[in-house]
């Protein structure tokens, strides 16, 4: 059926390096190295911000508000007189929490629905896909907005809102992937030697179908931070002692003329994080995906 063919084309994962046979020193390797270093640094910031940040993120120096980036304040100070660099370092924790948990929840539920739907097929597939279709007609941000408005602003609710809005996407991708793998020869082979249906599913189909979710997830990490940022732009964000990157961006937007650094650095943090995760994710996929490793 045509629909499936298309889904598969769309959902095929990009390859950072298609020509692996070529010389190893290329842009991609340098980038990979930089990316790994960056991600490790961000993770370290989230775990042990105290050791990295030069100031306390809540310390308000009223004597030097809105000062430019300098050797004293690498990323300048914000309108409270807080050190932006320290804020970015400390803010990484909540940003990662928003990104990672919402992606995990969204992809597990969405992926689960998609896998079940795709593997079992029939009426269940039909029903689940109808539900997903319904969810897709309501734009994600709208859903997130409604959920955030309903539950009130808190970190967990934002995670839930973002996760809920990403479920349909994961479900569709997973289903498409399962459908295409179901038809592969090795699945048939395994079935023909009498392996149990669920065993086939767990041992052969699932391991072969996670890579598109990985790609979606790496993008999702960034977008969920951004949706959270959008919510705080619309006034549904959380006010925490240590704001996450998205909230920092939103706070600094009115100060672009007098203090560009306030929003630019948190924005760069999001971009570099997403970028690095994507580079690493692509590499992981190329290395571990059974499909591509077979091609070697």
């Amino acid at each position: 059926m045509k629909e499936i063919v298309n889904e598969e084309t769309v959902l095929r994962v990009p390859k950072w390096t298609l020509s692996k046979r070529k010389k190893n020193i290329s842009f991609s390797n340098i980038f990979l190295l930089v990316a790994i270093v960056l991600v490790l640094f961000i993770i370290a910031s989230a775990l042990i911000p105290k050791w990295i940040a030069p100031y306390s993120p809540t310390y308000m120096n009223t004597e030097s508000i809105l000062s430019e980036p300098s050797s004293k304040h690498w990323f300048g100070t914000d309108y409270f007189g807080r050190d932006v660099f320290s804020l970015v370092i400390y803010g990484s924790r909540d940003s990662l929490i928003i990104g990672i948990t919402s992606v995990l929840i969204g992809s597990l539920i969405g992926g689960g629905i998609g896998a079940v739907s795709g593997y079992i097929g029939g009426y269940i597939d039909h029903f689940l896909m109808r539900v997903i279709e319904i969810l897709m007609t309501i734009p994600g941000i709208l859903l997130a907005l409604a959920i955030a408005a309903a539950l009130g602003p808190s970190l967990m609710n934002i995670v839930l809102a973002v996760a809920a809005s990403s479920i349909p996407g994961y479900a569709r991708v997973m289903r498409g992937q399962i459908l295409s793998i179901k038809k592969r020869q090795f699945v048939d082979a395994s079935r023909s030697i009498g392996t149990h249906s669920w065993k086939v599913f767990v041992w052969h189909i699932l391991p072969n179908s996670w890579s598109p979710l990985l790609v979606m997830g790496t993008i999702g990490l960034g977008t969920s931070i951004l949706i959270g940022s959008g919510l705080s732009f619309l006034g549904l964000g959380v006010i925490k002692e240590v704001p996450d990157w998205g909230a920092l961006l939103s706070q600094g937007r009115g100060y672009l003329v007098v203090g560009w650094w306030m929003s630019t650095f948190p924005g760069l943090a999001i971009t570099l994080f997403v970028l690095s995760i994507n580079i690493i994710g692509d590499k992981l996929r190329d290395t571990f995906d059974p499909k591509t490793s077979r091609m070697r």
Binding site: S26, F27, G222, L249, S250, R253, I270, T271, V274
Partner: peptide, 22 residues
């Protein structure tokens, strides 16, 4: 894998990692 590829991918990632209000 040439510079134009790298640049395009950067532009793409900037596109999806910059909030529209900003």
């Amino acid at each position: 894998n040439r510079w134009i590829d790298v640049l395009s991918r950067f532009i793409g990632l900037f596109g999806i990692s910059m909030p529209t209000f900003w």
